[in-house]
Write a protein that binds this DNA or RNA. Structure first.
Length: 868
RNA sequence: GCCGAUGUGGCGGAAUGGUAUACGCGGUGGUCUCAAAAACCACUGCCCUCACGGGCUUAAGGGUUCGAGUCCCUUCAUCGGCACCA
């Protein structure tokens, strides 16, 4: 009968007498410690703590009602890192709050006939409960709820600061309109022509909208100096901003004069032509001699005036068709759909070559990018090439293909888009590839027909939403004074607690007389309020600043508090926010810095994206698939510690992985073994009936078994510390498992070992290393060992590299790179000796098969490779 | 189409250019039990062999190297992002 089995029998007998003592019951201990930590303000970060600060932030959750397993994943990793960092001597601030405004609340409210406010606040209450059950070190004293007036007052105040500095403005412009959500959307919220939230194809609407001038910061937003961000995210932001360098060239068009009756003479006269300049943006001014046609976006304002009477009907039909089809066609996967377009019947003059080319409209030219006009260079642009082929327009080669002789472009299958020397280009002929662009720009600037120019894909951020559940935009419209900002001392502009929802496409606030009607802050005459509300991304663009000073009634934050805590040291959240939240927040910080409110450039120094937890079937969780894991149920069954540990054990933290119901059983079994290891050895050391002599006493020479345990302890500290620091939680837990396996094996081999200080030290180290990952069981067992302070207040254990070195090493003997034998040796064995031993190995000799060893490679401490 | 990431046992996954498959799940056999569950012990990449032992294996193919899962090239597959951006 093995020792462990005997122990188990004894434990089983004892269970009858004291169940509480011997059974691991996560439900009980987790509730107990959570209550204790709350009482003792474990998570509360003090501003006056002298230790170095560490701002450990997770992305603000939306209170959808239930904490998703994905939240658990994100927050567990963040919490482990936070607890670990705290034990390493930092004053860690790890706040939590709620991004509480937004469409889902309003949609749910309409569906269930309850008010968004009630729905949201109820959800928050439930999520607070769920968040507490994680056993995370949240600083609840700094909680923010973005839909409450003490928060949105400052959201409104910030809007006014942006307005004051001309970074918020109102304009009438074509906006993305979601007919299902009944509101306009920012460009970032339109994915593939459809609403990001409900996937309804968006429409274009001309409405007065509020925008934030994020484009002013386009260049600075392209710089990521000093930021430790995933390459992927930086690339996504860079592509989103989409900086293109090239030239703006002004082509000249002549609007035909109208035939008109002179009222004085009664005779018909032809008015003189009107000369208009139409700028185009191009990245390839070196191809300007290859222009054979000119294309305007169908929405271009000059289209109507540049259309000849003969073409009018066809043009109008095309514009109508483009308006209807564009968004739907964008959704189709057929990216290579044939080019369409209509000629206007008029011409433009190429200001460099002097040639006249026809003007067309085509939907491949977008009004929203560049100038909404394009010079058609079919030989050197694939789209223009396809367009020319479709309408039999001439193709003219003006760039050489390296040293290849010129060929007839009409025979080509693709445009030649590579750079090369200029040809067929008048005075520019022969300009080499690296100078071609600059020479043409220089010439155009000299002749004043064009200039170097830069264009961005990034548009200003549209922030008006025609919905109720958001922060009201603090603006009043006065018949006399126009748009007037609400004076700061009159903030907040309170959102009425209730709203009457009507599917009108206008904010419900418009139908609330008590909200709508007010007086002009300037003249006191009757006026109306802005009834649009702010995009919720505004709320989440500054919450990390508010956490530093969450309850300040006099300011959005006190400068010294923000200076103490910001910027965020580590920000952990989903990659789906790469071009929205993360870009907006950077913009906010830069703008506020320029206004003098902040003195740093970037909000988030280190950014980390956790992976996605998939359903047990390996597919993204969704209600319709029925593969959703509800945290409450698994926590109930296995305990929060097991859920935390299993989530981290699934795979690398940035990769996520499938949930596995057997997998969590395994982790739970591990925690049972930890419990057994500690409680059983505690029994043995704490009572006298099992004490066996033979273990070393203090001061005596350690036995081999003790040296082995001490080596294991130091190795595990080294390994787990590195893994936590790099957020490799899966391998950290594998190490912690090996630690327990090693201790159990030692215990089985020499039961007396458990009485030694060495073993006791190993157990204490195990609990400290477990503390960040499974905080409750670590705390409970720590106290069982007789400690009165929290395990979470211990400093992180140190290790001695010298003590991690093995007493004997295994040297691999290879012949021609293949494993043939193994040698046990002392770590400091001499090279000569190793070579001799390896060559003498019968197995190596057999593999050599009589051939002489040409060469012997020795990698100290690892292997010998005999080349024969 | 472009950009990026990833391909390792039955499964999730480990591996500073140096013992591939750590750790866990699952499976098989065993101990305990009247029995089952739990727990514990042993084995568990594939092929050949009664065995000793040998051969093969990190998506596929090639290369560099004494030695490649790891570095380089080609191809394939999966996932993510962008997609007429002039």
């Amino acid at each position: 009968m093995s020792k462990t089995v005997q122990t188990f029998q004894r434990v089983k007998t004892e269970m009858a007498h004291s169940m509480v003592r011997t059974m691991y019951q996560p439900g009980e201990i987790e509730a107990k410690w959570q209550a204790r930590w709350a009482e003792e303000d474990y998570g509360v970060a003090r501003d006056d703590d002298p230790r170095p600060k560490f701002y450990n932030l997770v992305m603000l959750p939306y209170p959808s009602g239930d904490l998703h397993i994905g939240h658990w994943y994100n927050y567990t990793g963040a919490d482990i890192f936070g607890r670990f960092t705290r034990m390493r001597g930092y004053n860690v601030m790890q706040p939590i709050g709620f991004d509480a405004f937004g469409l889902p609340a309003e949609n749910a409210a309409i569906k269930r006939n309850i008010q968004p406010r009630t729905w949201t606040l109820d959800n928050i209450e439930n999520m607070r409960r769920q968040l507490r059950k994680m056993g995370a070190g949240w600083d609840w004293s700094r909680e923010i709820v973005s839909c409450l007036p003490d928060y949105y007052l400052w959201t409104q105040w910030l809007f006014l600061q942006f307005y004051k500095h001309d970074l918020a403005y109102r304009t009438k412009a074509p906006a993305n309109w979601c007919p299902s959500c009944n509101t306009t959307l920012a460009n970032e919220q339109v994915v593939g022509g459809a609403c990001e939230r409900c996937h309804t194809p968006v429409e274009r609407r001309e409405i007065d909208q509020w925008l934030m001038r994020i484009t002013k910061y386009a260049d600075e937003l392209l710089r990521f100096d000093g930021l430790d961000w995933p390459e992927k995210t930086r690339v996504m932001q860079t592509n989103w901003i989409g900086k293109s360098e090239g030239a703006e060239v002004r082509f000249v068009a002549h609007i035909p004069g109208k035939r008109r009756k002179n009222p004085a003479t009664g005779k018909f006269v032809i008015e003189p032509e009107e000369r208009v300049e139409i700028p185009v943006f191009t990245t390839r001014p070196d191809t300007i001699y290859g222009v054979t046609f000119f294309v305007l976006a169908p929405e271009h304002p000059l289209v109507e005036r540049l259309t000849t009477p003969k073409q009018r009907k066809a043009v109008q039909a095309y514009i109508e068709q483009a308006r209807h089809e564009t968004e739907i066609d964008r959704l189709s996967t057929d990216a290579a759909r044939p080019k369409t377009g209509v000629a206007l019947g008029t011409f433009v003059t190429n200001p460099v070559s002097g040639e006249q080319v026809p003007i067309w409209i085509a939907d491949y030219v977008l009004m929203g990018y560049g100038t909404g006009a394009v010079m058609g260079v079919p030989a050197h642009d694939q789209r223009d090439f396809e367009f020319a082929r479709m309408f039999n327009l001439p193709i003219k080669q003006v760039i050489r293909d390296g040293d290849e002789p010129l060929t007839d472009p009409e025979t080509w299958e693709h445009a030649l888009t590579a750079h090369g020397a200029m040809v067929n280009s008048g005075q520019f002929d022969g300009a080499p590839p690296d100078q071609a662009i600059s020479k043409v720009i220089e010439w155009m600037e000299h002749k004043k027909v064009g200039r170097a120019a830069t264009t961005y894909r990034l548009r200003d951020w549209l922030v008006s939403r025609q919905r109720y559940w958001g922060a009201p935009i603090p603006i009043v419209y006065c018949p006399e004074h126009g748009a007037v900002p609400v004076p700061e001392d009159q903030l907040p502009v309170r959102l009425p607690d209730e709203a009457n929802f009507k599917p009108t496409g206008e904010s419900p606030l418009r139908y609330d007389p008590s909200f709508l009607h007010t007086t002009c802050p300037i003249c006191g005459e009757p006026a109306t309020r802005e009834t649009d509300t702010l995009d919720t991304f505004i709320c989440s663009s500054w919450y990390f600043l508010r956490y530093a000073d969450a309850h300040n009634d006099n300011a959005a934050w006190a400068p010294d508090k923000v200076a103490k805590w910001l910027p965020v040291d580590r920000y952990i959240g989903g990659a789906e926010h790469a071009v929205m939240h993360l870009l907006y927040a950077r913009f906010f910080v830069k703008a506020l810095r320029d206004m003098g409110w902040l003195n740093f450039d970037e909000p988030f120094i280190k950014l980390y994206h956790q992976g996605t937890v998939l359903g047990p079937d390996g597919v993204k969780m969704s209600k319709s698939r029925g593969n959703v894991i509800a945290p409450d149920a698994v926590v109930e069954r296995y305990g929060a510690d097991a859920v935390r540990a299993f989530l981290m054990f699934m795979g690398p933290f940035d990769q996520g992985g499938p949930w596995n119901n057997q997998g969590i059983e395994g982790v739970r079994r591990y925690l049972n073994r930890v419990w057994a290891l500690v409680t059983e050895t505690l029994d043995e050391s704490g009572s006298d009936h099992h004490v066996v002599n033979g273990a070393s006493q203090d001061g005596a020479t350690p036995t081999a078994a003790e040296r082995g345990i001490e080596r294991l302890r130091h190795r595990m500290i080294a390994r787990v510390t590195d893994d936590y620091a790099e957020m490799r939680f899966n391998t950290a837990l594998a190490g912690l498992m090996e630690f327990v396996n090693g201790l159990n094996k030692a215990r089985e081999e020499s039961p007396a070992i458990t009485q030694t200080p060495t073993f006791r030290a190993a157990i204490e180290t195990l609990l400290t290393l477990l503390a960040p990952m499974t905080p409750h069981i670590a705390e409970e067992l720590w106290h069982m060992l007789g400690h009165t302070e929290s395990v979470h207040d211990q400093s992180w254990p140190a290790y001695d590299p010298a003590l991690t070195v093995a007493e004997t090493i295994t040297l691999i003997v290879q012949v021609n790179g293949k494993l043939r034998d193994k040698l046990e040796a002392a770590p400091d064995i001499a090279e000569d000796e190793v070579r001799a031993l390896a060559l003498a190995s019968p197995k190596a000799q057999a593999a050599l098969d009589g051939r002489p060893a040409k060469k012997v490679i020795y990698v100290p401490g690892r292997l010998v490779n005999i080349v024969g």
